[in-house]
Amino acid sequence: MEKPKLQELSLEQVKKKEKSLKMYIGIFIPLIIGLFFFVIRDYLNGKEMDWAILTIAICTLGGPATIYPELKEVQKEIRARSKFR
């Protein structure tokens, strides 16, 4: 299914989209911090590296990296619509 263009959505729908994208980033950040905390803690304590958790932590970095450009487009659309009011 194609995602709808931002211009076709109402301002209220665009603001909801912005809020949900910010929430996704807000979920990813503590998750990334937590995963890397445990990987680094185990490494500094001299334990064997848990490669599965390290791989998951690295892959989790892709979440905000893919969401951020879309968030910027949504914020740009909101600013553009706010100028006309």
Rank of each mutant, 00 (worst) to 15 (best):
G34M: 01
E77H: 02
K17P: 00
L31D: 02
I25A: 04
K76Y: 06
I29K: 12
F38Q: 10
L44I: 11
E48N: 13
K3T: 10
Q7K: 14
L21E: 04
L31Y: 11
I53M: 07
K47I: 01
F84R: 15
G34V: 01
L54P: 00
G62F: 15
V74L: 07
F37I: 11
K17T: 06
I25Y: 03
K72V: 10
K83I: 14
N45W: 14
E18G: 06
I32R: 10
E70Y: 05
D50E: 12
E18Y: 05
L21N: 05
I40G: 04
V74A: 04
A57S: 10
I32N: 08
L6G: 07
K16V: 02
E2F: 06
S10P: 05
Q13F: 07
I33F: 12
F37V: 08
K17N: 03
E18M: 07
M23N: 07
L44D: 07
P69C: 13
R85Y: 14
I40D: 02
L35W: 11
F38H: 12
L31F: 11
L71Y: 15
M49T: 09
K15Q: 12
A65V: 06
I33L: 13
K83G: 09
F28Y: 13
G34S: 08
M1H: 09
G46D: 12
E48D: 12
A52F: 15
I27A: 08
E73I: 00
T55W: 06
G63E: 05
K17E: 09
C59V: 11
K76T: 04
T55A: 10
M1K: 09
K72A: 13
C59R: 11
G63T: 06
V74S: 00
V39P: 00
P30H: 10
L71A: 08
L35M: 15
K83H: 13
K76A: 10
D50L: 04
G26T: 05
S10M: 00
S82K: 15
A80E: 11
K3H: 09
T55M: 07
A65F: 11
I33W: 07
M23K: 13
I29W: 00
L54T: 07
L21P: 06
E8S: 08
M23L: 15
I32C: 13
K22N: 11
L9Q: 10
L61R: 11
V39C: 04
V14F: 00
F38P: 03
I67M: 08
T66E: 01
K22R: 15
P69W: 00
K83F: 13
G26N: 13
S20D: 10
L6R: 07
C59W: 14
I53E: 04
K17M: 12
A65T: 09
P4N: 02
I25F: 06
E12C: 01
G46V: 01
S20P: 02
K22C: 02
E73A: 09
E12K: 03
G26P: 03
E70Q: 04
I67K: 02
Q7A: 15
E73H: 08
P30I: 04
Y68P: 03
E12G: 09
L54S: 06
